[in-house]
Nucleic acid binder design. Structure first.
Lengths: 300, 300
DNA sequence: CTGAAAGCGCTAACAG
DNA sequence: CTGTTAGCGCTTTCAG
């Protein structure tokens, strides 16, 4: 139904290969015929079929973006940086929400591989089985992993080796608002005497705020709270959240840049890890913040 | 490099068309040969090339999603609903941020059309030129427009025809946090006597909160505020925001369902407009809320 | 500088 | 039930 290269060729009295050359790089084509072809293509409103092109070139000009959940503003910001970076190379981004579910995640990788995306950017689940690792490795695609440093080990060990050593209580759950409320409820039930909470991310910290509010606990008077990410809204919740800033947009942008280079230069190698700086943002949810911020960090 | 259907065929001693049948619907294939083919495909870790398949079937199984900015939690929520709906038909979503820029938007439409997506879901800019409308119409793709009802005319006329008619001051700007702060600054400079603000969305309302705070204005004592969208965080900002709830996830989900049907049934028709119910959520940012909420609404 | 021809990897008639 | 044969729409040698 739509007009094809053949139509343009017929209409401008040249061969389809000439049309192809004229419309792509224009190299090795007589200037006049090029102009004529371009004119015809415009007139016919010709839209090259990228699917066909991809089939022959082997490059799809699209990238996969697997995130736990785009509704977490942290990832929305990362995604925006990623998209902007991708557009500079006229690539587009296929969005996948994994909910940090290993099965879903692997399914997305497979599906993206079948669509022949040029690469994948993902924030992985913490623990991948050996099999899953292998599957990732030989899916034949460059993959960039974002923001995964395993666990809160650094946080814990920093606390333990502090001047006044502390043995923190570590709870795991959903990395969203509901996770924050649930975990806080559980924590306060079992340990009504806790004085401070370090949430894995700001959205969870918001959940902490909500639960504290519900239980009549004042922040920071009764309970100190630190978040992670410094998402935009952390400054306007009540109380303004003390948190660790991460360059979210830049992380997404940089990750795609790396991915793109990886996809192009088949033999280009990068250092395995790339740590971007974080920064403590002191606001009003925490009474004291003397502990050294952890080097490694995590998100969901 | 990757294993192709031909390899599977050779390895299982059948023709490629048999492999195709066995792996797709499996219909009209001897059960034993089907099993054998499947086994070989698994062993060889065969991943069908969807690009090639798309070229012949004419369906790409991907949809375009053009939003103004994924960083607005409203759209993140819509996007999540959209993605979940798309997955039920094993389609994936190509994410585009238009920043509500008409030029960018049309470029995305073109680009998506060239990639032969099966359809596009977008929240359009308010005013499209006749030319742009035409371009949209004959890009050959089903397009679903989300949440665009033109302007605040309904809001204004409701105020004017109220018991005590009011002539509102209407300001336009960016539909994000910065837009909220800037517009509020400008408004308060020019009209220090305003007593109430209706923000076009919650994120802008947050900007209002911030500026009010900076100027020592108390909400709602000095200034009443209503937002729009009821994004998750509107409940935990200070003061909790009075706002109009929109079923964001459901909107995204429903829009994709419509789009999918549109893409399948070539002659299926839907009513041009589809209005989902909104609901007033009274919290603490507004002293009185007697005005009838507008039927039509907008977002950025 | 331009045309002819061979595919990219797969599906879909059409025979057998 | 299975194989043969055309393509899908484009890029890319290879000749001319």
């Amino acid at each position: 139904m739509p007009v094809k290269i053949k139509d343009v060729a017929r209409e401008s009295g040249v061969n389809i290969s000439t049309v192809s050359r004229a419309l792509n790089n224009g190299y090795g084509v007589n200037e006049q015929t090029r102009e004529r072809v371009v004119a015809v293509a415009t007139r016919l409103n010709y839209r090259p079929n990228r699917v066909a092109r991809s089939l022959v070139t082997g490059r799809s000009h699209s990238l996969g973006l697997i995130l736990s959940d785009i509704r977490n503003p942290f990832f929305a910001e990362v995604a925006r940086g990623a998209e902007d970076a991708a557009r500079t190379s006229s690539c587009d981004l296929v969005l996948c929400n994994s909910d940090l579910d290993a099965g879903k995640q692997m399914q997305y990788v497979r599906s993206l591989a079948e669509k022949r995306v040029d690469g994948i950017l993902m924030n992985s689940v913490s623990e991948l089985s050996r099999e899953q690792q292998a599957q990732l490795a030989d899916c034949g695609l460059p993959i960039v992993l974002l923001n995964r440093s395993g666990s809160t080990r650094g946080f814990v060990s920093a606390l333990q080796s502090a001047e006044n050593p502390v043995q923190p209580i570590v709870l795991y759950g959903k990395f969203n608002f509901a996770g924050g409320t649930e975990l806080t409820g559980k924590l306060l039930d079992e340990h009504p005497d806790v004085t401070a909470i370090f949430a894995a991310n700001d959205v969870m910290a918001f959940g902490v705020v909500r639960t504290a509010l519900d239980r009549g606990l004042r922040i920071p008077e009764d309970l100190s709270l630190i978040g992670f990410d410094n998402i935009e809204f952390s400054a306007i919740v009540h109380p303004p959240l003390t948190t660790i800033h991460q360059p979210k947009y830049e992380m997404g942008y940089a990750a795609i840049e790396i991915l793109l280079r990886l996809a192009h230069d088949k033999n280009w190698q990068i250092p395995e890890h790339r740590l971007l700086g974080v920064e403590m943002i002191e606001r009003q949810s925490c009474r004291e913040a003397r502990v050294q911020p952890p080097i490694a960090s995590r998100n969901s």
